[in-house]
Design a protein around this nucleic acid. Structure first.
Lengths: 164, 164
DNA sequence: CTGCTAATGTTATAATGTTGCAAATTTCGC
DNA sequence: GCGAAATTTGCAACATTATAACATTAGCAG
């Protein structure tokens, strides 16, 4: 077991990207969905780091690529990727992040570091069941659960302590 | 115990508003904060229903009031109200709703009906502790927790069943 | 090839939120 | 009360995020 989760420690991020793309191709094939060059490129960009990326950030990089894209291009690609569970939208940030549990059914919970901006996606069964239970008590039928926790990651907490 | 929570059944909503305003005056006094006419009016508007209201919706009503307001007026009022725990922002909707637990410390959880738009705010201790625990397992220090559950309220679920 | 569907391009515009500065109001020490 | 300091508001401009509507192109089945 690692001392801390991936986003919080140095790692070969190219491997993250490569794996994400490979899984994406796999999943799209299973879904009979087309992972077109634009969609794949957008997914790759979203995966450039473990920090969420805004749609217009993606757009800017596409422009650098020489791809003369407009906002709808990016939003459509992101919609597609979301539909197939390849990226998530972090609504408290209006930004997007690669899904680290693609394929598996999952109720994501996001830990968003206010200091470094990295986001860790967790599957938290305890949380999911507690939410379901609370909703059931109100006879509410949940459909989509958003859990976003802003705070400080272990690394930034430690650094803050040193600065003290 | 009611068969269902307030937003989901007919009730004297004026009483909701009156109580919210009274509590707000109380809380602001305790905080040595000024509940100015604009701020109070915005709070009242947010409380017009149990459906969240966008900043520009508030702005439009202020305009009808004859109040020649610009966006910053509304956003500033909303910031103030949020800071004092009188309204919440629902980030998945870019909209605001009156807090039903003003004063008490609370980790709100929002049940958002996709059909009628009503929002129920719950204090769910089980959920809060599960989130805290999950974060702790990653050595993450939570600061602000957003839980928004989109789905169908009891009333709309029932109606949908009738239509079948 | 032909015709259908999905995907993309293109232009414009809507919706949401912020910055910066000036004017007015309130607070508070005197 | 009176005036300086701080808070609040007015106001204009602008920044960011997202969508609508319609034309065009690419992929694919027959």
């Amino acid at each position: 077991m690692p001392t801390s989760a991936l986003p919080y420690r140095p790692h070969n991020h190219d491997a993250c990207v490569a794996q994400a793309l490979a899984e994406a191709r796999d999943i799209c094939q299973q879904h009979h969905a087309r992972l077109t060059p634009t969609r794949e490129r957008v997914l790759e960009l979203i995966w450039q780091s473990h920090k969420p990326l805004g749609a217009y950030d993606v757009l800017a990089v596409l422009a650098e690529d020489g791809h003369n894209a407009a906002p709808p291009t990016v939003y459509r690609a992101l919609d597609f990727l979301q539909q197939h569970g390849l990226v998530h939208r972090i609504s408290s940030l209006n930004a997007f992040i690669g899904c680290t549990h693609a394929g598996k059914s999952h109720n994501g919970m996001f830990l968003i570091c206010r200091s470094c901006g990295n986001v860790l996606e967790l599957t938290a069964p305890g949380v999911a069941s507690a939410v379901t239970k609370a909703a059931a008590q109100e006879s509410f039928r949940p459909d989509d659960v958003t859990i976003e926790v802003a705070g400080y990651c272990p690394r930034c907490s430690a650094e803050a302590a040193h600065d003290g």
